[in-house]
Design a protein around this nucleic acid. Sequence first.
DNA 1: CGCAGCGCCTGAAGGC
DNA 2: TGCCTTCAGGCGCTGC
Length: 278
Amino acid sequence: MWPELPSGPADEMPELPEVETIRRQLAPRIQGRRIQDAHSHESEKFTPAKDAIGTTIQGLNRRGKYLIASLNDGRELIIHLGMTGSLTISPDTSDDPYIRAWWHLDDTEYLAYRDVRRFGRIRCVPAGQYDTIPTLAAQGPDALSPEFTPDGFYQALRTSRRRIPTQLLSQKPVAGVGNIYGTEALWMAGIHPAKRQISRMAAEKLHAALVEVLRAGLANGGTTLRDYRNADGGEGSHQNALACYGRSGQPCLRCATPLQHRTYDARTLTFCPQCQPR
DNA sequence: CGCAGCGCCTGAAGGC
DNA sequence: TGCCTTCAGGCGCTGC
């Protein structure tokens, strides 16, 4: 018998590969469509969904984990999926109690936002005006953009004395990374999650690992451990490719040492004590 | 201005 | 069986 996994099946949150998968599926289906009507949960996290009524969607972009729909009146509809958010297109509004918002497109279909835990949020702002969305305004280059460079990444990591995983989750050195892909990249790069400073060479390895693991996650359509579904309701398959996240107690795929997990800054990090020395 | 600490949420899982 | 507690965690906000 393997030792127990960390309590319960791990949750997952939509990170860059999951959000980009959804974006690619939705973009051609909502572009050019008019939002005839909209509805939302009463929470102020979601009521801005209704601010987009009467506009036409011109395109759907993404920055980090934020989906950004450009509207024809110069504003943008911004959607963050939080931990359990999903977006699907359906011919009608269902009685699903976890639908927190929907937009009626051209009197034909509905774009539905489902979020069990309500950690996501929706905003409607003048294009590019993100001062009321602090994480979006302050986040670093998107991990799959050309602006994400090894040198810029190293310099960004140098400016903070927080632990490396905490810096990654802040979205400041790079945008789009969450606990799953961050854990995988740290394992790939051989960096212990308690570290606060790393060398230029280690930063370059981590940069390459992040790009590699996020591209792999995207190629696999995202990671579905429990909640994540893409815009067609389908599951990703990258959970089958995870080498470290959720594998505490199981042997490291490189050196067979049992992986360990520990809480740093209120987040569970799994790592190999042999391959990721302090 | 960086950052620590807290709150938001709910279902799942463990304890008794 | 069922009630109660704990856990998970991205991000916004507050205050040091």
